[in-house]
Structure formats: C-alpha cells, structure tokens
Write a protein that binds this DNA or RNA. Structure first.
Length: 419
RNA sequence: GGAGGGCUCGCAUAGCGGCCGAGUGCACCGGUCUUGAAAACCGGCAAACGAAAGUUUCGUGGGUUCAAAUCCCACGCCCUCCGCCA
C-alpha cells in the first residue's frame, strides 16, 4: 500500500510508475478525488462527535426539565453523528480500496518493459562443455534413485514427485548448508506455520492478482502459503519494532504450495515447476533508508550460495511489467540448465520498501518517530530447482553426479552413485 | 468434539453506564542524594491522525443508550478439565 499522503503530494511519480508497469494510471486521480471527500467526511464527523461529547457530559449533570430539553437535542445530534460516521467509514473504505489497487512505486533503476525486457546484470561461471550428451534431471533422477515423478503423479497428481534416497539426502544437505550459512550471516532461523489466516495472506499481497495460485482450505478459512515470505512478514504484523534492532533478519525453512494455475503445458516434465516444494527464504525488516543496500546484500548471499554449488548462472534485473505488485525492484538469479540450453530462475529477491509493511501495519520507532519499515525477501535455496541445477551441471557420462565441495561434509561423500 | 474461565497502556492488576483514555505495582527514562552503585525520594512514561483544537483505540465486529472498558449478540484468541490423537 502506498502512503496516501505521498500520492497526494507526488501524483505524477505514482502515475509514471503505474504506466511503467503497464498498469492503470487513472487510479491516481480517483484516489486523490476520493481522499479529498474522505478528509471532508472525517472533519465533519469529528466536529459533530466533539459536540456530542460535550453535550453528553452536560446531560449527566443536568436535572429535571433542563435534562429533558438537553436529551431532546442530544437525540437529534446522535442521529447526525451516526450518519456522519457511516459516511466517513464509507469514504475511508472507498479510498483504501482504490489505494490498494496501486502497485508499489518502481525503483527508477528498474528496467521498463514486459517480461522479456529484463536486463542481464552479470554472468558468473561458464556453462560447461560436455564431451557426451548430457541427460536431463528426470533421467538422472531415475538413474540415481533420487526423483520419482511417476509415483508422484500416481499418488498426488501432476506436478508431484517423490525425492528418494540421494534426492532426499540432497535436500537435507542443501537445507543444512543454507541454514548454517544464514545463521553465520546473522539470520534468525525460523520454521514458520505454512497454514495461515486471511489477514496474513492479504497483508502480504497474495490475495490480489496472485490469488488463483493459492491453495485455500475453505472449511477452516486458512491458506497454504506459497512461500515462507508470508508467515515471516506477518510475524510482526501490527507491531512496532525497536529502531535500533533493525535490520531484523529471518531465514525461514518451509514447504511451499502453489496451484500453478494457468501454467498448463509449461515445464510439465520433471520438477522445475511443482505444486509443493521446500525452500529456505531470507526475510529482512529494515530501515527504509537502508533498503537498497539490504537488497544488494541479500542478492550477494544468493550469489554466494550458487557459487558454493559451483553452478554457472546469470543475474537479471527484472523488468517493470514482470514485478510483483509489492516489489519496487527484483533481481533473479538464473542457473544454467544444460539440457534446456537456457538459464532458468532459481532464486529471486524483491525490495518491497514500505509497501508490504504498510498493509501489515509493521512500523519501527526511533528518535524521529514511528514509521513503516521496509521489507525485503530473497530465496536462499528452492530445493527442486537447485536439485535440477546440481544434477544436470555436475553429471558424469555414466549418469553419476559429483557433489559440490560445500555439500560434501553434509553428505559424507563426493559423488552420487547409480542405484 | 464436550464443559468451564479469561482477554484493560512493556508485564501484573483495579475499574460503580457519565467524575475513565483509564487507578495501582513492577519495569523503563530523567533528576536529587552518593566517590560510584544500590536503596530512598521527586518527576515522566500507551498508540494513531492532526499545525492546533480535537478525534479514534480497553481482543474483533455489530447492537442498546443522549452517553459503553462497563449492558446485549456474534466471532477470534488464550487458559483449565474431559474425550480423541502424532
């Protein structure tokens, strides 16, 4: 949610941002008009209410005829107050509904355009030249007894899978490595709830355009989260954080659930795009003035993880039209996937500035006062995609797979063997 | 699933429908005293919007009333007991 005051004072900036995203800029003028009415309604209500408060007090003190006369007036006033109150509520709701439609203000650095208009920031590592025909992760997963998509489909439907043997062990190793790295960097490790209430889901912005990708348990009115960003962000919902404790960093490990509606036919093979997976996510509550630096730091940790996995990748600056509504800028790390001859997204970090915190009512307090914090998130490791990258990039001609050095201590060996 | 109890300013508690945005204790901040600290004493101390006046907030939402922390209804959460259970 953008600050209404900011919209009022910088309408052009908001319009430009909306346009940059390819979204409706006319909402800005609707907000301004609605906000004007809202402020008038508030003023009117408050005046009447003040009058009523005074009158009510005098009723208590009065006696006899005087009291009867006062009561007469008070009754009339009460009706007027009630009416002004409902008008005010209506105006407030109307304004809020409009403001909620606006996406976060773009970072001026974000490339403008549609999905394909991203900017490549850098390449790290070189895609390996194979002197044999590389196998894809599905085949390797079978040879290693690591991934079973057929039984996954039998038991849970399409986009489901079993990680077995080496696959399961690899997940544990990845998670352990990620968490130990995060703890070293000062993150508080967290195992959050994955079943959350509507307020958490709504506050983090996942019930908007993204709603169709969210699993909902109707009977109990709870949602399955698509990322631990949701419970991590909502953790401090309605709280005022001590300013001197910022940044507050959490590393959440959780299962993630995604309906993947509207992706029929996309990545149907293997475990690139699945309904359920585990992920270690970084989340930071920080001072708004430091959000940009924090964003760079989170990206740096993502890169360090990929470096440790010895996987070639590139970093892209995601284009305005492809940003989530909460993000003002987003960097994706894309790993090289040999059998697809392409870079594919494995991690992603967004700077949500104060946008998300305002919706969740998360503030910080320091000598300057109480203001909304900035929130940022970034993937440290999303298991299935990392498994794909590791298997495909580190495979040998016979189908065995070399284990990156960083993971070897967690697995007690250097290679995954055939079963 | 069944039966009870509770939800008030960081914590613990008080609170008669108007004198309650709200008392007390602890914690915290500032001061006096002290070589320093403790103790004692004095003062301050919930949040939001607003330039201010003022308005809003006693779990949430609704209702009764001129007036609600206080009465009524619904929901949420917490606790205790019983049942079931990883």
């Amino acid at each position: 949610m953008i600050d209404v005051k900011f919209i009022r004072e910088n309408p052009d900036a908001v319009r430009a941002s909306q346009k940059g995203r390819g979204e409706d800029a006319s909402i800005v003028d609707q907000v301004i008009a609605s906000d004007e009415l809202r402020r008038v309604a508030i003023e009117k209500f408050e005046k009447l209410r003040a009058e009523q408060n005074v009158l009510s007090k005098s009723v208590g003190a009065a006696k006899g005829d005087e009291k009867i006369a006062l009561l007469e007036n008070a009754k009339k006033l009460a009706t007027a107050v009630k009416e002004a109150d409902s008008k005010r509520t209506e105006a407030e709701e109307h304004t809020k509904a409009l403001v909620m439609q606006l996406s976060n203000i773009l970072d001026p650095g974000a490339p403008i355009g549609a999905e394909a208009d991203f900017k490549v920031l850098e390449h790290v590592g070189t895609p390996r030249k194979f002197d044999f025909e590389p196998k894809d992760h599905v085949e390797l997963g079978k040879l290693l007894g690591a991934i079973d998509t057929e039984r996954g489909a039998k038991v849970a439907g399409s986009r489901s899978y079993y990680l077995t043997g080496s696959g399961a062990l690899l997940e544990f190793a990845l998670v352990n490595y990620a968490i130990s790295m995060a703890v070293k960097a000062g993150f508080v490790p967290v195992i959050p709830p994955v079943l959350v209430n509507p307020a958490a889901m709504e506050g983090t912005g996942f019930l908007g355009q993204a709603a169709e990708n969210v699993y909902r348990i109707e009977k109990d009115d709870v949602y399955l989260v698509g990322t631990s960003e949701v419970p991590l962000a909502a953790m401090h919902m309605d709280e005022i954080l001590p300013g001197d404790k910022l940044p507050m960093r959490y590393a959440g490990y959780s299962s993630c659930f995604r309906r993947e509606a509207g992706t029929y036919g996309k990545d149907t093979r293997g475990i690139i795009r699945v309904h359920q997976f585990d992920k270690v996510e970084m989340f930071s509550f920080c001072h708004p003035d430091q959000a940009k630096e924090e964003h760079a730091r989170i990206l740096q940790w993502e890169k360090e993880f990929l470096n440790a996995m010895e996987i070639p990748y590139r970093v892209i600056d995601v284009a305005s039209g492809d940003l989530g509504s909460s993000a003002n800028r987003k960097f994706d790390c894309e790993a090289w996937i040999p059998t697809q001859d392409a870079y594919r997204e494995v991690t992603s970090t967004s700077n949500c500035t104060e946008f998300q915190a305002r919706r969740l009512n998360i503030r910080y307090k320091d000598a300057e006062g109480t203001k909304a914090v900035a929130t940022l998130n970034g993937t440290l490791v999303a298991i299935p995609r990392m498994i794909v990258a590791i298997l495909e990039n580190h495979q040998n001609a016979d189908g065995t797979v070399n284990i990156p050095k960083a993971l070897q201590p967690f697995l007690g060996k250097e290679r995954f063997e055939l079963v």
